[in-house]
Amino acid sequence: MAKAITQIEKKQKNLQEERAEDLSAIVNQIADNREVIQDTLVILQELHEAGMIDMLKGFLRTREKVGTIAIEQLNQPGMHNIIKNGMNTIGLLANMNPDQLKAIFGGLNQGLEKAAKSTESQEQLGMWGLMKSMKNPSVKTSLNTMVSFLEGMGDGLNNKEIH
């Protein structure tokens, strides 16, 4: 009959063997992710050439001072209004129909171009010219749009619930 095993000997690796295995695992990982590492190095080189790495190092070295200054600036009374106005603007943009906004901005751009040309020529529009322009379909469309805008804005201002 066989003897019972009462003692198990574990082979313990020495420090050099552990480091060799660790290095082998790192080299394998580098080989597996070669493209990603090369892209990362290209990005880092571009950031270095642009001076961004030096700026980032300086920022990290003075992060406590920069943080203190940022908090002080955020605590300014005007900054609270800027943040609130920014959030309200984002809410406004989220509620707008992009196609309608594109049409309005397109008309606004053309109107600004025409207004710039008219200021260059410095022609004065008299009362007769103003009345004559009311027959122009483009002017009628623009006036109708502005009156509709004013009506909608008035309805919004008269509404007691502010959204």
Rank of each mutant, 00 (worst) to 15 (best):
10 K>D: 15
153 M>N: 13
11 K>M: 06
91 G>M: 06
142 S>M: 07
105 F>N: 10
8 I>F: 09
23 L>M: 12
110 Q>R: 02
25 A>R: 13
59 F>I: 03
90 I>E: 12
103 A>R: 03
127 M>Q: 10
13 K>P: 02
131 M>K: 02
140 K>H: 04
66 V>T: 11
1 M>F: 13
92 L>V: 08
128 W>H: 12
124 Q>P: 00
150 L>G: 04
48 H>R: 11
31 A>E: 15
31 A>I: 02
118 S>C: 07
104 I>V: 14
29 Q>L: 12
145 T>F: 06
57 K>C: 12
46 E>I: 12
143 L>E: 09
13 K>G: 06
91 G>L: 07
61 R>T: 09
160 K>T: 10
70 A>R: 05
17 E>C: 00
67 G>V: 00
29 Q>K: 08
135 K>H: 11
61 R>N: 10
62 T>Y: 11
56 L>D: 12
116 A>D: 14
157 L>H: 03
59 F>Q: 06
124 Q>K: 05
116 A>G: 11
132 K>Y: 09
68 T>A: 06
72 E>Y: 03
143 L>Q: 05
89 T>M: 07
52 M>S: 14
78 G>L: 00
81 N>Y: 10
151 E>T: 12
69 I>Q: 10
4 A>R: 07
10 K>V: 15
10 K>L: 15
8 I>H: 05
46 E>A: 12
45 Q>R: 08
4 A>Y: 06
159 N>W: 01
160 K>Q: 10
94 A>W: 02
58 G>H: 01
107 G>H: 01
128 W>L: 08
52 M>T: 14
78 G>Y: 00
147 V>E: 11
115 A>Q: 05
28 N>K: 10
136 N>K: 02
16 Q>Y: 15
132 K>W: 06
145 T>D: 15
155 D>F: 04
136 N>G: 01
38 Q>F: 04
13 K>M: 12
112 L>H: 03
34 R>L: 07
109 N>E: 13
4 A>H: 06
